[in-house]
């Protein structure tokens, strides 16, 4: 991707979630940026969740709704005093409705360097079948 190599990254303010459905504790909730793409066999979802550890990430799939939620532990030690705050840290939460039928038993999740890669394999059902018409 040659065109992206020269591009300068711009600051984007983290998207704060307005009304999280499951807010039970105080604190900010952000929606992670995602890429979703589809190959022949699977749907791949990539989500930016900086600071998230694998044990704090919950992925839930029920009735074609995929829910990602992650808790962030504070990185600051208590004796630190803030000088500049340009971004806030908080939980991640985002829901997706999946259109294709997903094979729930084969979902593969991988979290590295703050990026989640979720591979959702499609169920092998929708292969087109050719019906031959016989004529006597």
């Amino acid at each position: 991707m040659a065109d992206t190599e020269s591009k300068e990254l711009k600051v984007r303010v983290k998207q704060e979630l307005a009304t999280p459905a499951e807010q039970t504790r105080s604190g900010l909730v952000f929606t992670p940026s995602v890429d979703i793409y589809e190959t022949e066999k699977e749907i791949i979802l990539m989500a930016d969740m900086p600071g998230l550890k694998a044990k704090d990430l919950t992925i839930d799939l029920a009735d074609n709704t995929l829910t990602l939620s992650g808790d962030i532990e504070p990185f600051e030690s208590p004796d630190e005093e803030d000088l500049i705050i340009e971004y806030e840290v908080g939980k991640f939460y985002r829901q997706f409705t999946l259109s294709e039928v997903i094979d729930q038993s084969k979902i593969d999740a991988n979290l590295s360097d703050g990026v989640l890669r979720l591979a959702l394999p499609k169920v092998e059902k929708a292969k087109p079948r050719r019906i031959e018409v016989k004529a006597d």
Partner: peptide, 20 residues
């Protein structure tokens, strides 16, 4: 960001790559 090959279809593209 690793680019997907030509057979893939993007549904959503929010993550950005570039220099800083």
């Amino acid at each position: 960001i690793a680019g997907a090959d030509e057979n893939t279809r993007y549904h959503r593209r929010e993550r950005e790559a570039g220099k800083f």
